[in-house]
């Protein structure tokens, strides 16, 4: 589904990604871990098409298409979803109105009829149940005055409504207490299927207790330096990232 080959990217002239290789198949959950500044969030942003990041080399194919050629909105319409680390506030725009605009633009791109108000509301209701989000939150202005947990829940709710093929969760666990974390993880697990895939970007192993990955990759200095199964995450939790750093510099010498 997603194939990343030798991806290099920089921001304002500073190289952040230095040759990422990653293969993701439908139904898989991949965790990307790594110390602060290793390039985790950059990878998420580059895949979503954020403008500040310049891709200097490499290729990314998504469902057979050259992802890097597509505009951010077309990537979204093709089924790439990024759950933001810091969801943006849009004053005066209700979540409902925002999502309806989004859903209908995505449908238009796919050659589907727009959803009328009734159908859209029933879709909302169904997804609200799935991710356990309060209706009151959705009639408020998008993310405005939301707590950290509410913002993250709302991201997962949007994901549920938009039904992406590839979801990228960028540090979704940051700023969440354990209860909120469980709710969010439960939502993500509900949405998993054999046809879609998830990339979980996280610093801590904690989230992976609830969203269990098939593969774990460790990012360091803009490269994937180690890949393994979920046991790798536990090992990291126990030994810290220094162990990886030493190992990497050891092999380099």
């Amino acid at each position: 589904m997603l194939s990343v080959k030798n991806l290099h990217a920089s921001v304002e002239g500073t190289a952040i990604l230095n040759g990422i290789n990653l293969e993701i198949k439908p139904g898989e959950v991949h965790a990307i871990m790594g110390p602060n500044g290793s390039g985790k969030s950059t990878l998420a942003s580059v895949l979503a098409g954020r403008e500040e990041y310049e891709v200097t080399a490499g290729e990314v194919t998504f469902k057979g298409k050259d992802l890097l050629e597509l505009s951010p909105e077309d990537r979204a319409r093709e089924g790439v979803f990024l759950a933001f680390q810091y969801p943006v506030e849009i004053p005066g725009v209700s979540s409902t109105n925002f999502l309806r605009t989004a859903v209908n633009q995505v449908r238009e791109y796919r050659g589907q009829e727009p959803l009328d108000a009734v159908k859209f509301l029933s879709l909302m209701k169904e997804k609200m149940k799935l991710v356990e989000i309060d209706q009151k939150l959705l009639s408020r202005a998008l993310n405005e005055g939301f707590s950290g947990g509410e913002k993250k829940k709302n991201e997962i709710f949007q994901m549920a409504v938009l039904e992406p093929t590839l979801s990228i969760l960028d540090e979704t666990d940051s700023g969440l207490d354990i209860d909120a974390l469980k709710v969010v993880a439960h939502g993500v697990n509900q949405l998993k299927s054999k046809d879609n895939a998830t990339i979980v970007v996280t610093h801590y192993q904690r989230l992976l207790d609830y969203i269990v990955p098939d593969y774990v990759h460790v990012l360091f200095n803009g490269q994937i330096v180690k890949s393994g199964t979920k046991e790798l995450a536990l090992e990291l939790e126990e030994k810290g990232y220094d162990w990886i750093k030493d190992e990497v510099s050891g092999t380099a010498v």
């Binding site: 403008e51 849009i90 005066g92 633009q105």
Partner: peptide, 26 residues
């Protein structure tokens, strides 16, 4: 940031601005 957030949900930039401005003037 606001425009990119909308883009990432499949909304093109022009509609994003319309949405943001109308929200502001609501």
């Amino acid at each position: 940031d606001q425009i990119f957030y909308c883009n990432q949900r499949g909304i093109d930039s022009e509609d994003a601005v319309a949405l943001i401005v109308n929200g502001y003037a609501k």
